[in-house]
Nucleic acid binder design. Structure first.
Length: 112
DNA sequence: ATCCTGACTTGAC
DNA sequence: GGTCAAGCCAGGA
């Protein structure tokens, strides 16, 4: 059934596990999946995530800088920022304020 | 088949 | 501390 690699499904699964008000980085997911050097694939997976039936909170996934790099890839751009702000995350200049405090690590959430 | 690009990360200067 | 360059895998031309 896996049209795409299971890696993609795994990325979606982890992304959906991200609790509201929390954000994570592509590398964090990649590292958890064992693809630390393939953070780009995580981003590519997110591109398909928009077509996935179960909505994937891609807006909770940002780069290691806490910068909303994928903002322009959303259906309506800037939607990402609004969604994050709606969840209580403060964003300034397309960058998450106190990103470290809102950082969510799959390895920690899924218990080591 | 090659070359380039891309929602990234890390190491080095 | 910021900036540059290389590495990474997949997809499109």
């Amino acid at each position: 059934m896996p049209d795409k690699s299971d890696f993609f499904q795994d990325v979606y699964a982890v992304a959906r596990l991200i609790p509201p008000g929390m954000v994570t980085s592509y590398g964090a997911i990649g590292t958890y999946l064992g693809a630390a050097r393939s953070a780009r694939m995580v981003g590519w997976a997110m591109n398909n995530a928009q077509e996935q039936a179960p909505p994937v909170p891609a807006h909770r996934v940002v780069n290691r800088n806490g910068l909303l790099t994928g903002k322009g890839h959303f259906n309506p751009p800037c939607r990402m920022q609004e969604l994050l702000e709606k969840e209580g995350i403060v964003i300034e200049n397309d960058q998450i304020v106190d990103f470290k405090a809102h950082f969510w690590e799959p390895q920690e959430a899924l218990k080591i």
